[in-house]
Design a protein around this nucleic acid. Structure first.
Lengths: 144, 144
DNA sequence: TTCTTTTATGCAATAATATTGCATGGACAA
DNA sequence: TTGTCCATGCAATATTATTGCATAAAAGAA
């Protein structure tokens, strides 16, 4: 992990479609050396994977919501079932256990309000360990 | 945008490293047809770009924070300078204008607490339109 | 320092993959 | 039916990725 590796990561982080030859140019290496570095970074898990960024409007999930959740009990065993349900919920794109006022924060990428209602039912209303939740909807994307 | 296109998107969303031939197999098309669909989706902007997912630990940004921000005034002209600063702040990975209790929600990917302090200084403490902010730190990644 | 070992590099050959031209066939409208 | 349009598959071609190998640089060991 030297300076060149970081350069490579910073380029691929923004555009993984770039050809190896073009990337090699940018970091002043031969294509073969460059490729071997990229392969190494992948095998080491530094580059986890590469994904296509899809226009969410096209996928019909243009309603973004952020939900703060308060739990009754906070132990691992108490929140495990909740975490499982969260993982299986397609509309939940991100979920974190957090410090501060609330205990968890969820990101929802929804088709419409009807789906929101259904997700709430499954995740929050049916879970006795969830004592409260507060939802904010995304109006404007400042940075994404 | 038919069923096959959606299939393609769903595969590339998870793994853009897949070869065109392998993708073609999965959607039961010939490589050439499949490729032409992918190219079309890219030119249409349905596929915005493809990026490498980097292990954040390696990049030294392993401290994740979520900041809710309250503004004094909410008009476009009032929040424009804030939005500009947010865009220029490397550690801010996502930022949204939201409904509900707070006005904006920021995602920070930080090196350490010192950087957090500096970012707060630049974004919040020096902005008269920011009347309050509340930070939560990510303890556990339930889904990411 | 000097010698040895390891690791990274570039070049050139090769393999794999993407890309294009073209002919065919299906869907649809007149 | 007939014609047009568009997607498809095949095969040829162009790009790109990958590997072997010799050399050079870097990292240790004595």
């Amino acid at each position: 992990m030297d300076k060149i590796d970081y350069k490579i990561l910073n380029f691929l982080k923004e555009d993984a479609d770039i050809t190896n030859a073009a990337l090699a140019d940018k970091v002043y290496l031969s294509p073969s050396s460059c490729l071997r570095r990229v392969q190494k970074l992948k095998s080491q898990g530094v580059i986890k994977k590469t994904v296509a960024i899809i226009d969410e409007k096209v996928l019909g999930r243009n309603l973004q919501a952020i939900v703060e959740v308060d739990f009754d009990r906070h132990g691992t065993s108490s929140s495990a079932p909740f975490n499982e349900r969260v993982k299986n919920e397609i509309s939940v794109t991100k979920a974190y256990g957090i410090t501060g006022e609330s205990d968890a924060l969820l990101f929802l990428s929804l088709v419409d309000m009807q789906e929101y209602e259904q997700v709430c039912e499954r995740l929050f209303n049916n879970d006795k360990n969830v004592i409260r939740f507060r939802t904010s909807f995304v109006m404007k994307r400042i940075k994404d």
